[in-house]
Amino acid sequence: MNERARGNSILGMWIFIATEIVFFGVLLLSYAIYRWAYPYGFAEASGHTQLLKGTLNTAVLLTSSLTMALAVREASTGRPGKAQSVWLLATAALGAAFLVIKGFEYRAEFAEHLVPGPGFVYPGPLRGQVEIFFKLYFTLTGIHAIHLTIGCLLVLWCARAARAPIEGVGLYWHFVDLVWIFLYPLIYLVKRCG
């Protein structure tokens, strides 16, 4: 790809990231409104999230950002060799690991009857507020997971195709990580003291 096309592709991805910031921003706004309205419910609900898996997943994604950055660095030398493929595959593998761990999380939440809808069961007066928390939780993490899956596919595409826009894909991947960086404390750490 010539220099100008590369520049266009990177600029295009930054603008696309702006749209994604807005997209997730609206979801976070919904979260903020309801957390502000129902602080006790959100605090209690957050205590029922899987802190260990969530924290592990955060570490996984942060590491995947590192491997992605290293892959892009290889590409920028102009002579990407096997190293680039290794880093890309590592990134995709870490992404897949995230999804697997998330899957276990969802399974645990299903078993605890915390999936909103007719199957939702929760004792205590804050039931409705806790359900709202989990509605937002599943929506936020579900949409994040969809973005992550697309990211994995894009990364695999880069590993296979020499002409793929790896810097752009890198930016997308880091963005998916950025979203999770904010989701982590908002989901898992609302109230962990006492």
Partner: peptide, 27 residues
Amino acid sequence: LVLLFFMHLRESDGLAWIAVGAGLTWV
């Protein structure tokens, strides 16, 4: 940290800064 270093925002075109800034401002 991710934006500035992994995403190379520091070395990026002003336009990239404006794109991110505009998104954050609107949110």
